[in-house]
Structure formats: C-alpha cells, structure tokens
Amino acid sequence: MTTTVNTTDTKASPAVPGTGLDPGTQPDAYASTSDDRRLSQLDALEAEAILVIREMAGELERPALLFSGGKDSVVMLHLATKAFWPAPIPFPVLHVDTGHNFPEVLAYRDETVERLGLRLVVASVQDYIDDGRLRERADGTRNPLQTLPLLDAINDNRFDGVFGGGRRDEEKARAKERIVSLRDEFGQWDPKNQRPELWNLFNPRHRPGEHVRVFPISNWTEVDIWRYIDREDIPLAPLYYAHEREVFNRDGMWLAVGPVSQPRDDEQVETRLVRYRTVGDMSCTGAVESPARTNAEIVLEVAASTLTERGATRADDRISEAAMEDRKKEGYF
C-alpha cells in the first residue's frame, strides 16, 4: 500500500479552467526574478526559515523537531532537509501521539521518518490515560491532553529547544508569539513578558530547566504553505486531497465516521467528496467539502476560502475566546 500522494503525477492534470494559473506549465510561477535580484515572497520566507533552523542548530545543544505528519510540520522538515543538505538532519523528531490520529497520517509519518533516516521519539497520550496520569475529558477531545506528555518528553530527553510548525496566521494568540519563544521550567509561555527579538539576531539562551520553542514558519500563511508544497513537489498524506469518505455533520463540520467519532442518533451518515485542511485529533477535526485533487487546485481553493483553517475544521478552538492562549500558557505547542 502506498500512503503518499505523488504530486508529480497530479501536476500532469490540465490547468484549472478559467484561472490562468497553471504552475504545471509555468515552472517559474513562484520563482524570484534573477535580473533585479529581489527574492520573491516565497523565496524570502524559505530563506528566513532556513536561517532560523541553522541558527538554532548552531546555538542549542539538544534540539528536536515536532513532527506530526501534518502539512506544516512536513514543510518544516523539508526546510530542515535543505538547511543541512547534503548532511542528514542532525536532530530527532518528536511526535505527541494523541491516540486519535488518522491512520493515513501515522503511516505517512513512519514512511517519512524511514525515508529521511530520522530518529523518531513518540510521546503517547494513550499511555498516560492507560496508567492514570491523564484522564479522558468529558468532551472526548485529546488536544489539550498533549501538553503533559510533550513537557515530559522534553524533560526526559533533555531537549533544550523544540521546533514547531506553528504559524502566526493560524490564531490570534499565535499571532503574538516570537519566532524563538522562551518556556520556563514548567514549560509555560508568558505572553506579557516576551523577550525582545531584534533584526535577524535570534537568541535562544536560557537558564537550566528552561527551553525554547522555535517557529521557523511563523510568517507563512496557509496559502504560502500550499504554494510551497506545490513548488517543491512535497508528498503529503492522501487525506489532504479530495476523496470520498463517510461523514456526518456536527456543529457545521464534517466529521469522519471512525472509532473515536461516532454519529449520534440524530446525525445522518453520508458519503461526500471531502478533504482535510488540518489533521489533528480525529474526534474534533472536521473535513471540508472539496473537489480539489491537486496542489494547484488547493492553492486556489485556500486563497478563495472565507474561513480560516481552524475556524473551518477545529471544534476545540471554538470552546472559548482564549482557548489557544490558555493552552499555550500551560506549555502547549
């Protein structure tokens, strides 16, 4: 079974009608112009991310990179590959497994780790629930439960820096965070007292017990991510592309029928053409109806969307105004 979508094949499909946008036949659609030596926006974002990754590799003793198999962490890993080429990525990847992951994403994760010869450290929420260190929440979502296993993994492995794929356009608390962001000995973020971050000079120094979270793709938007995936032909887990799936509607979101998301009596199961914009906890991550089967089609779809990716797909972020900020203060991603 192959669990990745090879985007080279999909690019051979005809241009999206009427859009005039066909990166397949315009290989330079995203390129910088070499005559006046100005970097295109995408190249500028790539250069910034590689700068950050290399600088932290130089400054930190034991970094790790959070890798979930989701599109943002895949892009971050791709950037890390470029940063150190032709040497391998010099640090392990860390996955906090909620036990509610999409099987396709886990398969993609393992395949990628294998392909790049990485060391994978898994922190399992299920283990914590099984031995009583964590208790299942009434609403069934495990997103907030990831914080403790994450912090324990950082402590146990003595990681002094963790790369995350968070983007500032995702959420209003993330919009406030530094690229290199200090965490105290309890893993807490203090948004009212962040370290100044000046020019391109990144400073991850900290006291023993503290660590930093590093967000190399802070300044990328969802559309930038898809343009880059398109340009670089980065393979992704197949559920990011349109496919038929058994779903039911809850709170305006299409949830997949599966072991952790069963329809209630009043919820009808239908087969729909859907894709995922984010791939979090299956119990609370919704699919969107979409015919987009190629990266180029997704770029256009995302650019035209009237909803943010979290607004469209994450039930847990709807809980309260400051849900993300509160989770982040406790040490969440």
Binding site: T19, G20, L21, A29, Y30, A31, T33, R38, L39, S40, Q41, L42, A44, L45, V223, R227, V299, L300, A303, A304, S305, T306
Partner: peptide, 19 residues
Amino acid sequence: STPVLDPAAVAGAARGTLL
C-alpha cells in the same frame, strides 16, 4: 468582507516582493 478569488493576486503575490 468576502475575499474574492483573484487568480492574478494568488499568482502575483507569490512572485511579488515582501514588505
């Protein structure tokens, strides 16, 4: 506000500079 799909903007922004 309803963002309108402007393919020229989608493509242009990728080529254009960052300010």
